[in-house]
């Protein structure tokens, strides 16, 4: 329905639909809500808004009385929330959106529970341990749940615990070497996850086919390798010389994978942005000396604009070509 609206408005702007006919065309194609749609909308709005406000009221009330609640009452509340969510999962079943949302909610509350345990009992654990344990705890659920959002949450937790681990155990050398080693590990992790996801999706696992999730993974992988390349150019610390080749290899791999095999222009767009950022950094590093040179700024600016225009042109062509097939 959203598509029909776009088509009709395009045609109207080109003058192919007379001005007085636009509204009728939209209604006819079902892009606008009719009486029955409005009733359903009002029904759902009142329901969701009412439930959300009621639930918020309960949460606010608990927050107000938080200090006065005993330790066991607080534990009971948090654990009760998890049990209630799991009950919803059992009742709705994992095939329905309600069950999936409940499982995701339960997974999030597990984190709150772990944080609460750490705070109450003063275990002295590092923050990365919290995220690591949290990831470990929800792994069985992710395996059973079989829906993308939960796996994305799991991967985000793993990423966080890796990042925080290096922050905790860096020490003096960590401050110098830390960012790079951590980025390499994150890059390896996210790229492996993306590759595995795409491979499984292509092999026929249907529930992995949601594009948004694997795009998030690909973005994380691309961001890591771009950061590595930028760090090497800027000569942040005596790191390895592998960043630039790794970046180029990633670009080549992404191009071949997403241009021909899996057709997804999103990753190609991300790759283009990565190229622009690295090119700007490279030029900036070599042309901007101690006192900022006006000509250098202008040249780099023009190069950036030229690269992005070329990239835009290419991406639009690829996108429309993919749409046609």
């Amino acid at each position: 329905m959203a598509r029909a609206r776009d088509f009709i408005l395009d045609w109207a702007a080109q003058g192919r639909i007379p001005p007085h006919g636009v509204r009728r065309a939209l209604e006819y194609s079902g892009a606008l809500p009719g009486a029955a749609d409005w009733r359903a909308f009002l029904d759902r709005l009142l329901l969701w808004l009412g439930v959300a406000m009621l639930a918020s009221g309960v949460v606010f009330f608990l927050a107000y009385n938080w200090q006065e609640l005993g330790r066991f009452a607080k534990f009971a509340l948090v654990e009760g929330l998890i049990v209630a969510s799991l009950a919803v999962v059992w009742w709705q079943g994992l095939e329905h959106a309600g069950g999936k949302a409940a499982l995701l909610g339960a997974a999030l509350v597990v984190g709150a529970l772990l944080a609460f345990i750490g705070q109450t009992y003063q275990t002295g654990a590092d923050t990365f341990e919290l995220f690591a344990v949290w990831a470990g705890a929800i792994l069985p659920w992710a395996l059973v749940g079989r829906f993308p959002a939960l796996w994305v949450l799991w991967l985000a937790l793993v990423n966080l615990s890796v990042t925080l681990y290096f922050r905790a155990f860096g020490g003096v050398l960590g401050i110098v070497f830390g960012p790079e080693r951590q980025l390499w590990l994150l890059f390896a992790l996210n790229t492996a996850a993306t590759a595995l996801w795409e491979a499984l999706a292509a092999a026929g696992v249907a529930w992995l086919r949601e594009r948004w999730a694997v795009r998030v993974l690909a973005t994380a992988s691309g961001a890591c390798v771009t950061a590595l390349a930028v760090l090497q150019i800027v000569d942040w610390e005596p790191g390895s010389d592998w960043a630039a080749p790794a970046w180029m290899a990633w670009l080549a791999l992404a191009y071949f994978a997403y241009r021909n095999a899996i057709k997804d222009v999103y990753v190609l767009a991300g790759g283009a942005l990565s190229v622009i950022v690295v090119a700007a950094t490279f030029l900036g590093k070599h042309m901007l000396k101690a006192q900022a040179d006006a000509g250098a700024f202008l040249l780099i600016g023009v190069v950036v604009i030229g690269l992005s225009a070329a990239a835009g042109y290419w991406l639009k062509r690829v996108a429309s070509e993919m749409e046609r097939t």
Binding site: L273, D293, G295, F297, G301, S308, A319
Partner: peptide
């Protein structure tokens, strides 16, 4: 996402142009 990428790149370009004016 193509439009978003172009928007982001447009910004990077504008920053350099501003630097040009600022420096020159």
């Amino acid at each position: 996402y193509v439009r978003a990428m172009l928007g982001a790149a447009g910004w990077i370009g504008a920053l350099f142009l501003l630097g040009f004016v600022g420096a020159g």
